[in-house]
Design a protein around this nucleic acid. Structure first.
Lengths: 159, 159
DNA sequence: CTGAAATTGTTTACTAGGATAATGTTTTGA
DNA sequence: TCAAAACATTATCCTAGTAAACAATTTCAG
């Protein structure tokens, strides 16, 4: 059982069986890589990935219910409440209680919120370009399609 | 500006531009899907994905330095310390201070740790099968290869 | 119809996971 | 031998998750 004074085991020499072949582990690496790139590209703007996505989604869908935003972005409703409050504090998002269902909350961007998105849209586009930099265009299309299939996204590519 | 009494905007009818085409967002969905499946399949065993990976990696590489485990699994060293302590408390992992560098910590599985892995290896394999269930074998190979390329993994498929 | 029970949408209170920054030790290098 | 670097740990904090509570709406038995 002498495992003592052998090689020091680097990232290259370690035995990565069970991991390198695990789709679950690769999904984690992809997520970590995405986060790191996000903070390099957009970290200076004071929002995290989930917050950025939330603003984009509300911008595209004014009046969308808060719970629907949570469901689409896979954010827990309880956490969504906190995000929305912080957006309100920063004057980026408005909450409206609709008459037809006074339990629910409808969200839309304020003028500042719209400005924020417009100001950072090109930075966000550049971020996506950076994320894709290691892939060719066909590879990217294949990867996106397979990821959709992996997560069980219904919408198949319409031919 | 009447966005009031229109459609209620479901997950199908919402405008998902900026998101559906975002590789970053898809990476998040993949990660969430992986987590959910993990807890369905292996949640009953009391370990989370990162803990499971840690045990597997140590099992394959007895004597590996703690910091190397952190680096490979993309876990912060400070957090690794807590994980290792909890493994020690549960008698799954042993820490050794090697003579040749007494700053570092070498990790290996205890007998219970080895037992734990052996007992759950087939469940872990089944979990991977479940994760892959929406993909064909060639699709899976392509996906893994593209994910490696996406995250900047050096090792290309040797032909 | 009417009112109680169940459901839906959100919020609050609590807890835990994981990140950052600073510290302690040992080793390396000038 | 002293300064800098490397490895791990500690202390602190913040993000995000779970469970319970609250309020409004819908369902359904009578």
């Amino acid at each position: 059982m002498d495992l003592a004074v052998n090689e020091p085991l680097t990232e290259e020499t370690a035995d990565l069986r069970d991991l390198a072949d695990s789709i679950g582990f690769m999904a984690r690496l992809a997520q970590v890589h995405t986060y790191e790139t996000f903070f390099e590209d957009l970290g200076a703007y004071g929002l995290r990935p989930g917050e950025f996505s939330t603003l984009l989604l509300i911008g595209r869908n004014p009046g969308i219910r808060q719970g629907m935003v949570a469901q689409i972005l896979r954010i827990k409703p309880a956490h969504m409440t906190k995000l929305v409050r912080s957006f309100e504090d920063r004057q980026l998002v408005e909450r409206t209680i609709p008459d037809h269902d006074r339990r629910s909350v409808q969200l839309s961007l304020t003028t500042s919120g719209l400005d924020f998105i417009e100001e950072h849209r090109s930075a966000f586009a550049q971020h996506e370009i950076n994320l894709r930099s290691t892939l060719t265009a066909p590879e990217l299309r294949t990867l996106m399609q397979l990821l959709r299939k992996y997560v069980g996204f219904d919408w198949e590519e319409e031919s």
